[in-house]
Amino acid sequence: MNKSTSQRLPPLKRNWWLKHRFFKLYMLREATVLPLVFFILCFLAGMVALLQGAESWQGWIAFMGSPIVLLLNLLALAASLFHAATFFVLFPRVMPLRIAGHSLPDKAIVAGQWAGVVAVALLFFWLLGRGGV
């Protein structure tokens, strides 16, 4: 959308989205990136620590275990799942899939994407759940 068109409309008040549940959910979804950015900054700090040496790496793990950091990252986990729930339902609308002339039901496409989430988690479990290789 061209943002300059807004100049021709009466300006909205900043709290316009508080007036309807749909818009509140929209804003909540926009806000899912705030804890995401927090996690990414933590991750970047971890990469720096890893580059610095073993002691820094242990220090970073301890930092990640401090209650506020852990809480914010749990929020990021919840945000990623909420984002996933809203994002997956868009796929069949944006790109409906047809196999052999039959359109794939929306539910199947959404379920397929959740299967992807589980597959990635299983990959991580295979990689990290069994100790050193």
């Binding site: 990640m64 986990l77 994002f87």
Partner: peptide, 21 residues
């Protein structure tokens, strides 16, 4: 958005929750 939805739940769970705990 695809990466955030498909990858990040596992990444956050393992690196930011299970590892420090």
């Amino acid at each position: 958005g695809v990466c955030f939805a498909v990858l990040l739940p596992a990444v956050i769970l393992f690196i930011a929750v299970l590892l420090p705990l």
